[in-house]
Amino acid sequence: MDPRSEVLLRQARLFEGPVLLAGLPADDLLGQLPAAHGWSWHAGEQAQLDARFAGRCHYGTEPGAARFDSAVLFLPKSRELTDYLLQALAAHLAGGMLYLVGEKRAGIERASKQLAAFGKPRKLDSARHCQLWQVQVAQVPLVPQLEELAQQFSLQLDDGPLQVISLPGVFSHGRLDRGTALLLQHLDRLPAGHLLDFGCGAGVLGAVLKRRYPQSRISLLDVDAFAVASSRLTLAANGLQAEVLAGDGIHAAPLGLAAILSNPPFHQGVHTSYAATEQLLREASGHLQPGGELRLVANSFLQYKPLIEQHLGSCQTLADAEGFRIYQASKR
């Protein structure tokens, strides 16, 4: 059981009625709280919860249609995303209780101050290196419009400017990160066919690929609902058509790909995790056509080359700059 869930269950009497658990972990919390409904924006956790508690958790960027008279937000990493989620929940809780739970190292004490916009917050519990806070919603906000919270920036490319739409919580919100910037300089001579942007974030890489290779089929894949929504907005802002998929890891990707391109994720919430990237390197071959190519950017200190060569084929380093490397390998 996740320690945040354990803290909630210490106060289980507060959550006996219809409660919405926003950003809940994929543990047994829904089993312990039979009147609760979940809201997840992580496709992998949603799949696990749906397998165990069918119909009791939904995936997306909004609270959904399930009725609730209180809500718990499991603290996300991003302050901007926390603001949006708290407003989205509080807008449906006039006079009701809104709870915030999170790990101390994730900044729960700082985040608890964000509850003051709705009433007077108070700490209910502190255990398992976590804290649980509560506020009765006296100041009810308007339902936030997610797209109005987007940040837009323009990339100046050789074939003209590209508009990027970034939603709260998406990697490198409102700016182009250095790793992606380096990868964008090394997209030439890709094999013809179906191209995948793995871990698409705001859709920068996928949009650039569609513009550069207009005859190719382009797919974008991410685990996060806010990234999926951002990518769709970025494509639409540039008049581009591509397939945007929600899924957890490379197993959710199409087969028969000509190339997989990625600035792969290395965080799971507030925790550093290389599991998704290592899975990509181990299993990319199964999604590539013969001669298909993997091209990715990674921090220079990460020893990915031996793993790529073990599972895919001979690996070249196309660039090594500003703490990042571009790796290229083709399926044997």
Rank of each mutant, 00 (worst) to 15 (best):
V7T: 14
A12G: 02
A12K: 14
L24P: 08
P25H: 07
P25E: 09
A43I: 10
G44D: 12
A51G: 15
G60W: 04
L75E: 05
L98Q: 11
A111P: 08
A111G: 06
L115K: 02
A117R: 14
F118Y: 15
R122W: 07
L124R: 03
L142V: 06
Q145G: 05
E147N: 03
E148R: 12
A150L: 05
S154Q: 13
D159G: 02
G179P: 11
L183A: 10
L183K: 05
H186W: 11
A202H: 13
G203D: 14
V204M: 08
L205D: 10
R212V: 10
P214C: 12
S216Y: 04
I218N: 06
D224P: 05
T234A: 01
L235Y: 02
A236N: 00
A242F: 09
A242R: 09
E243Q: 12
G249I: 11
P254D: 14
L257T: 12
A258R: 04
S262V: 00
N263S: 04
F266C: 09
Y274M: 05
Y274F: 13
A275C: 01
Q279L: 12
L288W: 04
Q289R: 15
Q303C: 03
Y304H: 11
K305H: 01
H311N: 13
S314M: 06
A321S: 12
G323D: 13
S330Y: 01
